[in-house]
Write a protein that binds this DNA or RNA. Structure first.
Length: 628
DNA sequence: ATAGGGTTAG
């Protein structure tokens, strides 16, 4: 192939300025000047004249022209230059073809790029890398990986550019390990682009430990490598590690950029650290035009239970995309403002972007938590027609939740049967929850069995089933379930509540007495309980898992972690501050009543965030309307 | 002539 290529090039008739006439010389000079000045119209005019005379310019000049087309986003002009460059059987230098290749890639004309790539007689590392990076960015990962193999087969050695591109197309850990050792062998691991890509991909494949190892081997500090590792931990619910890394990064002397701040906000969000999030907000103010950063800020305020601040930001944002709207709609719904969420969805239909399937999850959630069964059905049924959104399992789960809360167990079964996709763990679990709330033991048993078929390790299924039996006093069945759990080595996750006081997080775990002030908290809790009992509080033992009687049953409720956290909050925070608690399990009915009464008794605003939603307790009532 | 980090739901 190489021989033919040289031969063709030497035979092509090229007019060079030294042998051509004066007019041709000035024409070519003009052309070169236009190209360097990026004057596209006049350059193309000169090109017309050159074609009429059958002369051509130097390949370097054409490359300038192609870059000019790229900058002006002139697709058809670019294609004309492509034709001209290859006219009369002439084969341009590889760097010029690479420039054309790059142009097609940047115009997102992948097919054209690949066609040109196939026709190239000589392909160097830049040609391969340009194409690989194009496929990688288009998420056509298989093609990108196949191209890397083709490249190696032709004996072209990948460089750091190739690796940092192709790594992002690595979907299997085995491939990644192979690539990684190849990178080590050729000594490219110290390139900062390669390092940040390695961290990214290990993180994407859930290998945080490996990501951290790659990070630790960094010698020369680099802001993007820092940002990659911080994002890795923030995205995998290791908010505390992410925040510590961020502190270290700042100490090392790197400034907070938009991506790092976004990850910091996400970490604050997952840890419910409103105070710290507000501190980060101060830094965000520098970048108030950054859409992604504003979206993260919006989410932080919603998730940390401060909808008012979220609304202020939402209304002030100059640019809002589908994520901004979805975040705000879901945020309102989760905080108990379902009707406001649906109003916002109405405005979105008029003046916002097209809703996506996540937006619809927020809308259905709002209906579900407001008990709006008919509205929910309407939204669910019209999704496909109005917005072309297919119902995924998540949408079915929302609908099931809606029906379950409304006690429509028969409709739930019907919906599960007509699902277009296979019912998943969440669907069965939702049915199980509804059966508990509405005391349907037979259906519950069926749902639990289906659920355990899909996932025999589902702790929740055993606990729910056991609770349902306990609620209907079927103690023998309770014992059975617990025996199965023990046999399969399954343990109930202990209830855990956290509260932020003076920028420090205090954890309360069921049965754990390690908090330094635990005695004081317990005494205070006893006082509150007797005062509340005087005011008519009756502990609701329906939520006790154990087969115990009287005092003891009441006792195991007494130590629920959220009660301890509430009492600690009342003790440590001034009255004007909201008591914000987040917990790992859903709040039980007894703690819910307790929180309502204590909020009234102590004139406090209490916010409890569970894995699904928020409860704002104020003056004896909760924003969820006792419906959760 | 070719390469990097961030946001909604689950």
């Amino acid at each position: 192939m190489k021989v033919v290529w040289r031969w063709v090039r030497s035979c092509a008739s090229v007019a060079s300025p030294t042998t051509a006439g004066d007019e041709t010389v000035s024409l070519l000079n003009d052309f070169a000047t236009m190209c360097h000045q990026r004057d596209l119209p006049r350059a193309m005019h000169a090109l017309d004249a050159m074609e009429r005379r059958g002369v051509r310019a130097h390949d370097l000049t054409y490359a300038e022209l192609v870059k000019c087309c790229l900058a002006r986003r002139a697709v058809s002009v670019g294609k004309r230059v492509h034709r001209h460059v290859f006219s009369n059987g002439y084969l341009p230098e590889t760097f010029l073809v690479n420039t054309l290749l790059n142009m097609y890639v940047k115009f997102h004309l992948l097919e054209e790029a690949h066609k040109l790539f196939d026709e190239m007689p000589e392909r160097n590392v830049v040609s391969w890398t340009t194409l690989i990076s194009a496929y990688s960015q288009a998420k056509l990962n298989d093609t990108a990986m196949r191209l890397l193999i083709g490249m190696l087969r032709e004996g072209v050695m990948p460089n750091m550019f190739t690796f940092s591109s192709v790594l992002r197309s690595c979907e299997r850990l085995s491939d990644l390990k192979q690539l990684h050792s190849f990178i080590l062998k050729v000594g490219l691991e110290s390139d900062v682009f390669v390092r940040s890509a390695l961290i990214d991909v290990y993180s994407k494949l859930g290998e945080l430990f490996e990501a951290q190892t790659v990070f630790r081997e960094m010698v020369t500090g680099d802001p993007v490598v820092w940002s990659s590792i911080i994002a890795a931990f923030a995205q995998h619910s290791n908010g505390d590690v992410a925040l510590n890394l961020y502190k270290r990064m700042r100490r090392t002397g790197f400034l907070a950029t938009q991506p790092t701040l976004t990850s910091v906000l996400r970490a604050c969000t997952s840890l419910s650290l409103l105070e710290l999030g507000m501190q980060a907000h101060v830094h965000v103010l520098k970048y108030d035009q950054d859409l992604i950063l504003n979206n993260a800020l919006l989410d932080m305020y919603c998730k940390c239970g401060s909808v008012e601040d979220a609304k202020l930001i939402f209304n002030r944002m100059a640019e809002k995309d589908v994520i901004s709207w979805s975040t705000m709609i879901a945020g309102l719904a989760q905080n108990g403002f379902s009707l406001e969420a649906l109003d916002l969805f109405d405005s979105m239909k008029v003046m916002g972007p097209k809703p996506n399937y996540i937006t619809m999850l927020g809308v259905l959630f709002a209906c579900s938590h407001a008990g709006l069964v008919n509205e929910g059905w309407n939204y669910f049924r019209s999704m496909k027609n109005l917005y072309g959104i297919d119902s995924e399992t998540e949408h079915y789960s929302c609908m099931l939740d809606l029906l379950g809360r409304a006690g429509k167990l028969d409709d739930m079964v019907k919906l599960i049967q007509e699902m277009s996709c296979e019912p998943d763990v969440v669907a069965w679990r939702t049915l199980l929850y509804a059966c508990r709330a509405h005391r349907n033991v037979d259906l519950a048993t069926y749902a639990a069995k289906e659920l355990l078929k899909l996932d025999p390790q589902d702790t929740g299924a055993y606990v729910l089933l056991s609770n349902i039996y306990a609620n209907s006093e079927k103690w023998n069945d309770v014992v059975d379930v617990r025996r199965t759990m023990r046999a399969r080595g399954i343990r109930k996750e202990p209830g855990c509540s956290w509260i932020e006081v003076n920028k420090q997080v205090h954890a309360f775990i069921l049965g754990d007495k390690s908090h330094p002030q635990i005695d004081e908290i317990n005494t205070k809790l006893d006082q509150f309980i007797s005062r509340l009992k005087g005011a008519g509080y009756v502990p609701d033992t329906n939520f006790v898992l154990k087969d115990l009687e009287g005092e003891q049953r009441e006792d195991s409720l007494r130590y629920h972690s959220e009660k301890l956290a509430i009492v600690f909050g009342i003790m440590s925070l001034p009255r004007e501050k909201s008591i914000r608690i987040w917990k790992n399990l859903r709040i039980c009915g007894d703690c819910h009543i307790f929180a309502k009464l204590i909020a009234k008794l102590e004139r406090r605003h209490i916010v409890i965030r569970d894995p699904i939603r928020y409860h704002h307790f104020r003056d004896g009532i909760c924003s969820c309307g006792d419906y959760w």
